[in-house]
């Protein structure tokens, strides 16, 4: 049987509505390639960090998303954003 997620994630970053601040609750590292996971950490995306979706490229979905992470803006592909679980910011 599959293990249930550690904390029931409200949603993932790729589905977070724009301009809504949320906190990263868990990251599904297993879904990410090793260099991707490392770069994500280097860009400061980790559990407990506040994030906000600023822009989505292209209409109809599929393009990358631009997120605010701390005081940085980071561009990620949808698939990576989908591995980042978020909950509403306290």
């Amino acid at each position: 049987m599959e293990m249930a997620p550690i904390r029931a994630p409200a949603q993932t970053l790729d589905r977070l509505p724009r301009r809504q601040t949320a906190t990263v609750s868990a990251i599904d590292w297993a879904r990410l390639a090793e260099p991707e996971a490392r770069r994500l950490r280097e860009l400061g995306v980790d559990e407990g960090v506040d994030v906000e979706v600023l822009h989505r490229a292209g209409w109809g979905g599929g393009g990358p998303v631009a997120c605010r992470v701390g005081r940085m803006t980071v561009a990620l592909r949808r698939a990576v954003a989908g591995a980042i679980h978020v909950t509403d910011a306290a």
């Binding site: 390639a33 260099p35 991707e36 770069r39 994500l40 860009l43 990358p64 631009a66 940085m72 803006t73 980071v74 561009a75 990620l76 592909r77 698939a79 990576v80």
Partner: peptide
Amino acid sequence: SSGFMMEM
């Protein structure tokens, strides 16, 4: 594909 992840 190697993906796309960049700081703006």
